[in-house]
C-alpha cells in the first residue's frame, strides 16, 4: 500500500487525479479498522492530516466553521464550541475514547456516513452545511442532502469535504443529546437522540429532533416536531411525540440490539425531555 501525505490542496488535487481509486484518510479511526478487517483493499491511501486549510476553527457571523480535519479532541477543547454549540460538544464527548478522539475528525465522522455516527444527530438538528472542495472549486450542501445511505455520500470523484458550517442555535433553550451504547465509552450507539427546543411562555415554539442508529441514515420526523409545537414540555405531550417517533424510525436487529427494542427506546428517549 502506498501512502501519500500532501501538504497543499493543489498537491491533493493532483494526487486525486492520478489515483482515482485511492482511499482518503483523515484520522483513520474508521478506515484503518476496516482495512485491518480486510473489508476493503486499497492500493493507495491519501492522508489529509497535513492540509492546513482543513485544520482551522473560525467563527463567522453566528456560525462556526470547523475544518474537516480538526480532531474531536480539539473540538472539545474549543471555547466557542463549548459556549455556542453545547449540543455538538455533548455528542463529540460521547464518541469513542480520549485516544480515538485524539485521532478522529469531524469530517471523518460525517464522510463515514454511518447511521450510528455520534455527531450526526446533533449536526442534523443544528442545520449544519458542508463545504465540498475539488480542483474545480467549492460547493455548499446541507448535511441532510450529503448523506444518502449507510456509507453513501454525495461526494463526487476528486472532491473532499473541507469544512463544516454550523449555525449557532439562537433562542433554543433546550439542547439535549442522549446516546445509549452497550457501555459508557468506546461504544457504538444503539439508539441516540438529539433535540433542540425553543419555548415561549412555557410553550414549545419550535422543536427539532433527530435519531441515530434507528434507520439507514439519521431519522427526522417533522410530524413529531409539529406535534410538540404549541404544547408545554409535559409528559402527556411527549408521550404523543414518542409514538410518532416510534412510527418514524426504521431500525434493524443486529448483534447489539433488536429492532423492536430500538424502536421502543427511540420513543422513550423523547420522554427524558420531561425530566430536564
Amino acid at each position: 500500500m502506498k501512502v501519500h501525505l500532501p501538504e497543499s490542496l493543489d498537491a491533493l488535487w493532483d494526487l486525486l487525479d492520478q489515483h482515482p481509486q485511492a482511499g482518503i484518510m483523515a484520522g483513520g479511526t474508521d478506515l484503518l479498522v476496516s482495512l485491518r478487517a480486510g473489508k476493503q483493499h486499497l492500493p493507495t491511501v491519501i492522508c489529509l492530516e497535513r492540509l492546513a486549510p482543513l485544520q482551522t476553527i473560525e467563527p463567522l457571523d453566528q456560525t462556526l466553521r470547523i475544518g474537516a480535519g480538526v480532531t474531536l479532541t480539539r473540538i472539545l477543547e474549543n471555547s466557542l464550541v463549548h459556549t455556542h454549540l453545547p449540543l455538538l460538544h455533548k455528542s463529540v464527548a460521547s464518541l469513542g475514547s480520549p485516544l480515538v478522539r485524539n485521532m478522529a475528525t469531524l469530517g471523518g465522522n460525517i464522510c463515514t456516513a454511518s447511521p450510528a455516527g455520534d455527531t450526526l444527530p446533533a449536526l442534523y438538528v443544528l442545520g449544519a452545511k458542508l463545504s465540498l472542495a475539488s480542483a474545480k472549486g467549492r460547493r455548499i450542501l446541507p448535511l441532510e442532502s450529503f448523506i444518502q445511505g449507510p456509507g453513501k455520500t454525495a461526494l463526487a470523484k476528486g472532491e473532499i469535504l473541507d469544512s463544516v458550517i454550523i449555525p449557532f442555535p439562537a433562542g433554543f433553550g433546550v439542547q439535549h443529546f442522549e446516546k445509549l451504547g452497550q457501555r459508557n465509552a468506546l461504544a457504538i450507539s444503539v439508539v441516540s437522540f438529539a433535540a433542540l427546543i425553543r419555548t415561549q411562555d412555557n410553550l414549545v415554539q419550535r422543536a427539532r429532533f433527530a435519531w441515530g442508529s434507528v434507520g439507514p441514515t439519521i431519522v427526522r420526523s417533522p410530524q413529531a416536531e409539529k406535534a410538540l409545537e404549541g404544547n408545554p414540555l409535559s409528559l402527556e405531550a411527549l408521550l404523543r411525540v414518542a409514538d410518532l417517533a416510534r412510527a418514524a424510525v426504521e431500525p434493524i436487529t443486529d448483534v447489539r440490539a433488536s429492532a423492536d427494542y430500538r424502536r421502543r427506546v427511540a420513543g422513550n428517549m423523547v420522554l427524558r425531555l420531561a425530566a430536564l
Binding site: S97, Q182, R183, N184, A185, L186, A187, I188, V255
Partner: peptide, 27 residues
C-alpha cells in the same frame, strides 16, 4: 451487565472487542 459470547448455530457473532462488550472505567 454486558459480557456474553453470542453464537448463532455455534458460530461466534461477537468476534472481537467491539462486539464482545467489556466494561470500561466509565462503567
Amino acid at each position: 451487565l454486558c459480557e456474553a459470547v453470542q453464537t448463532t448455530q455455534s458460530l461466534i457473532s461477537t468476534r472481537d472487542l467491539s462486539t464482545y462488550i467489556l466494561p470500561t472505567s466509565l462503567d
